[in-house]
Amino acid sequence: MITSSVILGTLRFPGYAAEGWSFKSLTDWWGQTEDKTERTERPQGHGAFTPVRSLRASRAISVEVNYLGRSQADVEDAFDTLSAIGADGPVLMTVETPAGASWRIVTVEKVTPLNHKGGARRGFAAVDLIAHDPRRYRSGEWLSTPPPSPGQGRTWPSVRPLIWPGGGSSGRVELVNDGKAPSAPVFRLGGAFASALITCVGTGARVGLDRPVPAGSFVEIDFSTRRAMLDGLSDVSRWLRFREWTEVPGLTSRTYQFDATSPDGAVMQGMVNHAWW
């Protein structure tokens, strides 16, 4: 039994359907794209100089789909619906398999009807897409922490067995990437505070926000786009400081420290998507 499905925007294409949409083939969803790093040949030696790192090109994806309707008009209407997907900008593409679902943001480059026959109740089309970020993702979990604060402490003398009081906060979240490709985290800083600082504990890399955020508002800092948005509406990237962007490598984790000045109910939420090539 075929259990895979392709979802493009609002349209779902199962691997098999007795009526409606289904997909016939999916090309280049998995695998690796080419390395676009320029190579400089050694003028007086064999081969080329070894690059410091590899940079991957965008990914071209192709899906062949078909539609089984009740009439030719039914098929043409379905193709009109397909042609509207992604016409105005990037869309979410998800592939579901027995191993789990993964997604990419893609642009629809072209929708080409194939083997169209007048009066036919079945129509075929090729959908060509580009994923400008070649990685595929599985959504991660949001974790939250307030700024660091001391605990209640232990009073002496005490009677055994000792019970240590709680309270306090480390001001840290540990973000885990279960994938095999590096992935950039996202942070949401909720007010109120006067300024904030996010520090990667393992590397010391910092990203700061030198702007007050009132209670009831939040700033989202996306390490992949390297921008900050206030309440999802206003770009406040000009108030970012240090800009020492980091990623969470595959099959590992990174711990991030949250510090804020004049905090009043301030909280940091952090999330990283699991990523694969």
Rank of each mutant, 00 (worst) to 15 (best):
G20P: 06
L143V: 04
T203A: 06
S158M: 12
S195K: 09
P263D: 06
D222Q: 10
G47T: 11
K36H: 03
L209V: 06
N66C: 15
S71V: 06
I130D: 00
S237R: 01
V272F: 05
G179T: 02
L26D: 01
Q269C: 09
V186I: 14
V159L: 10
L209R: 00
P134H: 10
C200I: 00
T145E: 07
M229S: 11
E141H: 08
G191N: 05
F193C: 08
E64D: 14
L162V: 12
V6C: 08
R39P: 01
R211I: 06
W30D: 14
V236K: 07
D133G: 10
G123S: 00
W276C: 06
G9Q: 08
D88H: 12
L114G: 01
A192C: 04
S5H: 13
S262I: 09
W21G: 00
P90C: 11
P90F: 04
M229T: 14
R227N: 10
K36D: 09
V248M: 05
R122F: 02
G31I: 13
L143D: 01
S25Q: 14
N66S: 15
T37N: 07
W277L: 14
A17Q: 01
L162E: 09
V95S: 09
H116L: 13
S83G: 15
Q44V: 13
D235H: 06
W239Q: 04
A181C: 02
W29I: 00
E64V: 15
S144K: 13
P182I: 03
P90S: 03
G190R: 11
R135M: 02
D259F: 07
T155D: 11
I221T: 04
S169P: 10
A196G: 10
T81G: 03
A275K: 07
V248H: 01
G86D: 02
G86V: 05
T97E: 12
D133W: 08
A260F: 00
K180Y: 09
R238G: 02
W277P: 07
P157C: 05
G171R: 03
P90H: 08
F49H: 12
R53G: 10
W29Y: 05
R227Q: 15
S83A: 15
T145F: 02
P165V: 01
L68M: 10
V65H: 03
P161S: 00
T27L: 11
L197M: 13
E220T: 15
T145I: 08
E174T: 15
V272P: 08
D235K: 07
N177I: 06
A84Y: 03
L8G: 04
T97K: 00
R59G: 09
T145S: 15
V207H: 09
H274C: 03
K24P: 00
A99D: 15
E19D: 09
L68A: 12
G119Q: 07
S54R: 12
G270R: 03
G167L: 09
R42N: 15
P182H: 04
A275Y: 07
S102F: 01
A60C: 00
V65D: 03
R104L: 04
E174W: 01
H132R: 11
R53E: 14
S62T: 15
E109C: 05
L129I: 03
H274D: 14
G119M: 05
A194V: 06
E109I: 04
R154S: 10
